[in-house]
Write a protein that binds this DNA or RNA. Structure first.
Lengths: 238, 238
DNA sequence: GTCAACCAAATTGTTGACAATATATCCGTC
DNA sequence: GACGGATATATTGTCAACAATTTGGTTGAC
């Protein structure tokens, strides 16, 4: 049961008068969209849950109109589903869509690896390669999944940054935000972390050599392997 | 100057009372989002134009709130830009973004061709192959660009349908809607239509043989070629 | 006892009014 | 005559009341 925010009367936003031109931003105007997005992505609200406009409006201290606009965007990103006159629910990811996503992700991640390799000096990958050869290996052995996921995140982030393609970055983001929760459940599958680590290191080694073609192919192979793993263990993760 | 819709008072939506339950849908409830999207994509409103909420609300006969929601979505799709307190303008495509798009499109179209080839019987491509071997050839010779573009559209549509991957389809759509106007200006460049035709036919021949790998590679080559062409003639088209 | 129709509460959808901000116009001063 | 500031207008942003629809429960008839 969602614990209610008692009252907390979030200040009616006016009461600023003509005189006191001090407060630039209104009371830390909460970015409704961003916060809702994070909650959904992190599954702080379970898939299938109903999202009530009134409730959220009150919690954020904004008019319902604002919530509604956020809903429009979230719906367009397929993070929620809206049924006319019946409200919005957090979208649930069905299995077939996940496989569709992996096919797309394969080619996009491949492109990302290739562009990144082409764009920056090979030596600049040394630190990541070190990370994946040393500390990450330790994390896997200790089953420290948080450190592991953090390493993955910085891998992706570095590559996306180097690829320097906003269109690509945005598409990858729109994919991550749908599968983030799922990935956490895949990574803990028996042996998956080890395999993933090895594959990532292979990609990095190709990048370290400046071999963009190999990097693309290896990254794609990595994604196919992840997809295959998921197919094998789908019953345990969905 | 946009010609004004005189008055046409779009019926205040009420006046339906409890008795006359005849009119199911309100007066053809105009899908604001879809219409605006098309206008922008077709460049019926020029890039850089200002979009006034009041104006549009009046034209469509809907409250401004509705326009605003549509704006949120259009902004998220990067079809318009919104500057706080200053309104919305139709996004203009800058050159670097176009090249970014082509890099992404290369891998996505490649995937699309591969999946399509894998999913359906090779014979089912015969009609498209015939189209591109006969009628389309004629269209090019006659400089009938409309017929030509229609052929391309059905090519893409058939492939996307056969690929059967909603995630992929949506991403390709979001790319098309940004570059549609541009493509029309590329196609009329000297020799481009001929080259494009030849390349498309090569892709179809691979698909007709059921060779998914070749189809992917050929489609990718086709996109690279288009990108190269654009690079060469960029000054004439942007 | 079960089913249907009906009523009540909650929730979404719609609307116009009001406030804040930016743009354009005008006026006075240098 | 040109620049700077103040006023007027237009446009965007905010909001709360109202209408329509769905949901859950209750009553009544068979």
């Amino acid at each position: 049961m969602a614990q209610k925010v008692v009252s907390m009367a979030p200040r009616p936003s006016r009461a600023r008068g003509t005189g006191g031109g001090r407060n630039r931003r209104r009371t830390a105007a909460p970015n409704v969209l961003q916060v809702l997005r994070e909650r959904i992505v992190r599954q702080e609200i379970a898939p299938g849950s109903k999202l009530r406009e009134n409730e959220l409006a009150q919690e954020f201290g904004v008019p319902r109109t604002r919530i509604r606009e956020a809903f429009s965007v979230l719906e367009q990103r397929e993070l929620i589903e809206r049924i006319p006159n019946r409200g919005a629910v957090v979208a649930r990811l069905d299995l077939s869509q996940v496989f569709h996503i992996y096919d797309v992700r394969e080619v996009l991640e491949g492109l990302c690896a290739r562009l990144a390799t082409q764009n920056v000096a090979p030596e600049s990958w040394q630190d990541l390669l070190d990370l994946f050869s040393g500390p990450m290996k330790k994390s896997v052995e200790k089953n420290d999944f948080d450190a592991f996921l953090a390493g993955y995140a910085s891998f992706r982030q570095r590559l996306a940054g180097a690829a320097d393609n906003p269109v690509l970055t945005q598409m990858l983001d729109s994919i991550y935000e749908k599968t983030q929760a799922l990935i956490r459940r895949i990574i803990i599958l028996p042996g998956r972390a080890e395999i993933g680590l090895r594959e990532h290191r292979a990609v990095l080694e190709a990048m370290r050599k400046g071999d963009a073609e190999a990097a693309e192919q290896l990254r794609r192979a990595n994604m196919r392997s992840a997809k295959e793993y998921l197919r094998q263990f789908q019953k345990y993760v969905l």
